[in-house]
């Protein structure tokens, strides 16, 4: 996997999420979804610093074991993501595809800054619905 992916997640099952972002599952053991989608959840109510981003990236690398996978970054409720943290998380673009999940207008602004400009190396999209995000990412999973 890539540097800078912070994984904080939950065994999500495809289609198992709901559309109410703020109420969706946000905590649990850090693992990967059974379907091979990596889900990163940034802690709500916190300022995301580079340090925090990097520590999560470290976990992500361990979980992904070097295989490029679709990635979901859940930013719902975070206070801010500073520039250096954005650089770390932005490097996740080398994943096969990245979905950024947010619910409020603030999330939308933060999410779009996180996704960066036009020069993303892999498909990136913002979603307000977890299930839509996971469905979109499922399209990038390798055909069994």
């Amino acid at each position: 996997m890539t540097d800078g992916i912070t994984i904080d997640n939950v065994a999500d099952k495809l289609g198992d999420g709901d559309d109410v972002g703020a109420d969706a599952p946000r905590a649990g053991a850090q693992t990967m979804s059974a379907e091979g989608i990596t889900v990163i959840t940034l802690p709500a109510g916190e300022h995301i610093s580079r340090r925090l981003a990097e520590s999560k990236a470290e976990q992500a690398r361990a979980l992904a074991a070097g295989v490029p996978r679709p990635l979901l970054i859940d930013i719902r409720g975070v206070k801010s993501i500073d520039r250096n943290a954005r650089v770390v998380l932005g490097a996740a673009h080398v994943s096969v595809a990245v979905a950024v999940l947010g619910s409020s207008p603030v999330d939308r602004v933060l999410g779009n800054f996180l996704m960066g400009g036009k020069d993303a190396k892999s498909p990136v999209a913002f979603f307000a619905s977890r299930s839509e995000a996971l469905a979109w990412l499922a399209g990038f999973l390798p055909v069994p």
Partner: peptide, 25 residues
């Protein structure tokens, strides 16, 4: 500091913060 409302005004505030940070950088 954005409020907990996380509404459109907070979104503008967040955007302002992010743009200011970019500008500073």
């Amino acid at each position: 500091e954005p409020s907990d409302a996380r509404d459109e005004v907070d979104a503008v505030i967040t955007g302002f913060n992010l743009l200011a940070e970019e500008l500073e950088q």
